[in-house]
Structures are given as structure tokens and as C-alpha cells.
């Protein structure tokens, strides 16, 4: 229980709080803010987990690009809140059932973690510098890397086509 664990605990509590806040907030814009907070916490956890490159990427890609896009769309559409009209009758059972299933899923995961996960761990830290990651990306992961670029291109084209005015 070193200082590291105390940091983890603090960050984890903030992250959970942010997640719950996102899930419960009525206003989509608040939700987005909570989510940004959550992502920032996760970035800190990445640092604790010896993944500095991913921590930076998390901040730039998720908080910097993806969430900005979310906020932008919410504001442009003015879709912070849905009209007050209540949930449909035939969907009444949806909420409790979803909640129950979520809890069940969590219990299962915890059960697996405590009973099945091998409790050995690597002795030494791996080299996760940007150099090492770059070498892996352009080495054994070159093909997925190229595929990812095509995926991004396709997404770009798709987004342009979908939002084009008739």
C-alpha cells in the first residue's frame, strides 16, 4: 500500500463519480463534461500503469478530439435535453431490467477477477516509450496500422456524405 495506491484510490473514486454523473445527468452537456473528467482520470491511471504514451494519446484523442466533437454537435443541434415527453409505456420494464443485468455483469466480472485471474505478475517493467510503441506499430502491427488508416479514411468520407445537404 504505497503512495501509488493512494493516488489510484483517489483517482478511481473521482472516475467512478464522473461515470455515475454522466449516466444520471439530465443535460447532455453536463454528461459530456463528466465524461471528460472520467477520461482524464483514466489517463492518470494509464500513467500509473506504465503507459505514458497512451496517457498522452488519451488526453489528445479522447478529450481533445472526440469529446470536443461531442460538445460541438450537442451545441450545434441544441440537443442538450430531450423534450419532457416521458418514456413509452412498452419500455417501462427496460430500466429495471437493464440495471439488474448491469449488476449481474459486475458480479460476474468480480467473481472472475477474484477466482480465476492468475495472481502472478511480470517482474520487470516493460519498455513502453513512444519509441518502443512506434517500432511495434511499424513492425509486427504494420498491417493493422494500415487498415486503421483506411478505416479512418472511410469514416471521414462517410461523415462527409452523411451530413451533406441534399
Amino acid at each position: 500500500m504505497g503512495s501509488e495506491f493512494i493516488v489510484f484510490l483517489a483517482v478511481a473514486i473521482v472516475a467512478i463519480g464522473a461515470a455515475v454523473g454522466m449516466a444520471l445527468s439530465r443535460n447532455a452537456l453536463y454528461s459530456a463534461m463528466f465524461l471528460i473528467l472520467n477520461f482524464a482520470c483514466v489517463a492518470v491511471l494509464y500513467l500509473l500503469l506504465n503507459a505514458p504514451f497512451l496517457a498522452v494519446a488519451q488526453v489528445t484523442v479522447y478529450t481533445g478530439a472526440i469529446m470536443v466533437l461531442f460538445v460541438f454537435v450537442i451545441m450545434v443541434l441544441g440537443a442538450e435535453k430531450l423534450p419532457a415527453g416521458e418514456s413509452r409505456k412498452e419500455m417501462a420494464w427496460q430500466r429495471p431490467l437493464a440495471l439488474g443485468l448491469g449488476v449481474l455483469l459486475l458480479i460476474q466480472a468480480a467473481y472472475v477477477v477474484f477466482t480465476r485471474v492468475v495472481s502472478s505478475s511480470a517482474t520487470k517493467l516493460i519498455d513502453s516509450s513512444p519509441l518502443a510503441i512506434g517500432k511495434a506499430l511499424f513492425g509486427p502491427y504494420l498491417f493493422p496500422f494500415e487498415v486503421a488508416s483506411i478505416l479512418l479514411l472511410a469514416a471521414m468520407v462517410g461523415a462527409v456524405v452523411l451530413t451533406r445537404k441534399e
Partner: peptide, 18 residues
């Protein structure tokens, strides 16, 4: 309703885990 389908998916996932 897309949400119903999502719910059924989650049910399936939980059931498979069980």
C-alpha cells in the same frame, strides 16, 4: 426499439458468461 435489442444483447452476453 434499438434499446430493446441492446438489452437482449446484454442478456445474451450475461447468459454466455454464466
Amino acid at each position: 426499439f434499438a434499446r430493446t435489442y441492446g438489452l437482449v444483447m446484454l442478456m445474451g452476453a450475461v447468459a454466455i458468461l454464466v
